[in-house]
Computed example of a mutant assay.
Amino acid sequence: MSFPTGLRLSGHGLMLREWDDGDLAAMVGLFDDPDVAYWTPLVTPFDLGAARIYLKRAGERRAEGRRVQLAITVDGHEPVGEVMLMLAGTGLDVAEIGYIVGAAHRGRGLAARAVRVMTGFARDTMGITRLLLEIEAGNAASEAVARAAGYHLTDAPPIPGEDKGRPLYLRTWAHGRR
């Protein structure tokens, strides 16, 4: 499966676009945050070097057809966060969506709107029928995003893991009918 080139998605008052080299400083401002460090696997501190590596890896994963990571913007220019679509493998009809919104931009419904736009793209353009979110138990803000974007908690057992030396349990949320 491959993603369209020059991907730009719009809807719900947002423009989602590809990251580029001009976004490195903005990425630092968005991702070098204690909440992002705690709830995501991103490195901390997230500095310009980390941003360069992140952007390079995003390009590699996109080229492999495994993941597309888009900047969330309200104007098509200044990033306020990121939303990503991650495929488990080529030809599969299941994918996961992830998202981050910078601290200065939270509380405006940006993450839920971005997830809705990405969900529509995944279903309508990519033909993905089962969309999931994996949210760490206790992440109330992310659970609120999931609910607002039309996702519900599934009965799947929590997925155990570890991040930065601490144990975690990811709960699975699915889009659409129960």
Score class of each variant (00 low, 15 high):
Y54N: 14
D23V: 05
A149T: 03
P34A: 08
L55G: 08
D124P: 00
A174Y: 05
D155V: 08
D155W: 01
S2V: 14
P45I: 05
M126W: 08
D124I: 00
A146Q: 11
R171L: 04
R57T: 15
H12P: 00
A137V: 10
R17F: 06
V145E: 05
L132Y: 08
G107W: 07
R62P: 03
E134Q: 14
V43L: 12
R52A: 14
G76D: 04
S142I: 04
A37E: 10
G59A: 11
R57V: 15
T5I: 09
E78T: 13
A144W: 04
G81S: 03
D124A: 14
R66T: 11
A137Q: 12
V43G: 13
S2Q: 15
L170S: 12
A71F: 02
E18S: 10
A156R: 12
P79F: 05
A137N: 01
V83M: 07
E136A: 13
R17C: 03
G65D: 08
L14C: 02
R61M: 15
A149F: 06
I128E: 09
G22H: 03
V74M: 06
A137C: 01
R171K: 13
Y169A: 15
M126A: 08
Y151D: 07
R67W: 10
W173G: 03
R123A: 11
A58F: 09
G49Q: 10
G165D: 07
D20I: 00
I159W: 10
Y38W: 13
A26V: 00
L87D: 06
L133F: 04
T154D: 08
L87V: 07
D21W: 00
V36F: 03
L16P: 01
Y54R: 14
R67T: 14
A111S: 09
A174H: 06
G107A: 09
G49P: 04
A149H: 06
R61F: 13
I72R: 00
G65Q: 07
I53E: 15
P4N: 11
V36E: 02
A50H: 09
G81L: 03
A146T: 10
R8C: 05
G161L: 06
G165Y: 10
L110P: 02
P158Q: 09
F31T: 02
L48T: 06
R147V: 12
I72K: 00
A37Y: 01
R106D: 02
L70R: 01
R66S: 13
L42P: 00
L168F: 11
R147G: 09
T119W: 02
G107E: 11
A112F: 03
M27N: 00
K164I: 09
L153E: 07
H77F: 05
R66N: 15
A146M: 07
G65L: 11
L153I: 03
L16H: 01
R147W: 02
A141F: 03
R113V: 00
A148M: 07
F46R: 06
A146I: 04
R166K: 13
R67Q: 15
G109C: 07
G176M: 09
A104G: 10
G89H: 15
T44A: 15
G138Y: 01
G76C: 08
M1E: 12
V43I: 10
L110Q: 01
G6N: 13
